[in-house]
Design a protein around this nucleic acid. Sequence first.
DNA 1: ATGTCAGCTTGAAGCTGA
Length: 262
Amino acid sequence: MRIATWNVNSIRTRVDRVVAFLERHDVDVLAMQETKCKDEQFPLERFKQAGYEIAHHGLNQWNGVAIASRVGLNDVQIGFEDMPGFGDPVAAEARAIGATCGDVRMWSLYVPNGREIGHPHYMYKLEWLERLRLDGAKWLAEDPLAQIALMGDWNIAPTDEDVWDMGFFEGKTHVTPPERDAFQAMIDAGFSDVVRPFTPGPGTYTYWDYTQLRFPKKQGMRIDFALCSPALAERVEGAQIDRDERKGKGASDHAPVIVDLD
DNA sequence: ATGTCAGCTTGAAGCTGA
């Protein structure tokens, strides 16, 4: 089985590219982030024609997460237990959706950006990650053999190798110790980065800012991850980052990350 | 931050978010 994750940065703008990607790579399950639309605006029919079912959660033009599957799509869950909200009034955002696809419990996750160090959104990001970790640890405690894939845009570069220039990120989010600690806590809870062994760095990224010619200059960040439970990690046979999808007109600023399971 | 995007408001250009 082949699973993947991709921050598509608007599914309505990107649907042609996304469906072509699924077919080109023969992907069974895709976790999408930043669909940027409400449920009724999601281009369901295009996926259906290609043979995929969709579970989508979108509340407005911000965030939005989805799972496309051609191997079943069951027990859909919107958000996780005690997932923090944001805003005034505080409300849950469309940042997490889970579904069982074949024998894998898939999650599409869009971790809050954080905006600036010390910003309320930064505190929200850390709290969101902590609650996700607690829920994830609980799933594994309940079933140590659970096959769980936490797929998504984590908005964290876990090591200095994961950004093009640490100097540039001084005083910025995505690289701060509290964010990195929160990411490491997911690893310590039992979810491992199954892509890195197949895509070593330095210079291996999944995201390049649209501005300043970051992509042609190879100035990116590695912030999109597939974190797998122990039982699922054992099944991983390969992984790749499809950098080609960042090329050309109409590209998302993120590249898809693909994982092969036995 | 924005030599870039995307979506919304609104009726051409400004705002938010990334």
